[in-house]
């Protein structure tokens, strides 16, 4: 049963080869959706544009719907798919740092790659800055290692937190949270655009 690679149904070489095309599709869709430019990313933090939320939330609702359908039909063993574990404290602190860097730089890692590919010099400079930031992390890793691994909760899903399973609690909460955020961001954007401020 899929997932194919984890269950040994395809070779490592074939998986890498297909990975190139998955990346091409990913980059293609990011650019098509307008996420290859800081002009459509940075304004999200000023409630002026919500393309980031519209794309991300419809993406996760779509992906989770595929996961639920394929799991119900027995076409995928989703427990074999790698999902990042939860580390509460580093995610809180790291997330805030990430957000500061994002409004400062205008990109996140994936969108900076697309921006670089389309001639945006600021995107390419962001990507070079990322190499510097990685190196800085390796330099201080020994000092912050215990913090970086604090608050570990494993593969911590909504159903693990609240009971139920993937098809009930987890899926419903994901969809409700997504729609609520879209509604909130849309409301804030409309106020901002009407008042014409926040510039």
């Amino acid at each position: 049963m899929p997932p194919l690679f984890a269950n040994g149904l395809i070779s490592n070489g074939l998986n890498l080869f297909i990975g190139l095309f998955i990346g091409i599709a990913f980059g293609f869709v990011l650019e098509r959706s307008g996420l290859g430019t800081a002009r459509n990313i940075a304004p999200t933090f000023y409630f002026r544009k919500i393309i980031v939320e519209q794309v991300m939330i419809s993406a996760v609702v779509t992906a989770t719907t595929w996961v639920v359908i394929f799991s119900l039909l027995g076409w995928i063993d989703f427990s074999k798919v790698f999902i990042p574990a939860t580390y509460v404290w580093p995610y809180l602190v790291g997330g805030v740092l990430f957000g500061i860097g994002m409004v400062m730089g205008g990109y996140c890692p994936g969108t900076s790659v697309v921006a670089s590919a389309t001639g945006r010099i600021d995107g390419a400079v962001f990507a070079v800055g990322m190499v510097a930031g990685m190196w800085a992390y390796y330099e201080v890793y020994n000092a912050i290692q215990s913090f970086a691994n604090s608050g570990y909760a494993g593969r911590f899903t909504w159903s693990k937190l609240l009971g139920g399973d993937m098809f009930s609690t987890s899926y419903i909460i994901t969809v409700i949270l997504g729609i609520s955020i879209l509604a909130f961001m849309g409301y804030m954007r409309n106020i901002t655009l009407k008042k014409g401020d926040n510039r």
Binding site: V103, G105, Y107, P109, V125, F126, A132, A136, A148
Partner: peptide
């Protein structure tokens, strides 16, 4: 700012 933002984002991704 693009450079510094990229560096800060990259550093953060190792924590997250």
């Amino acid at each position: 700012f693009a450079f510094l933002g990229g560096a800060l984002v990259a550093f953060a991704t190792r924590l997250t």
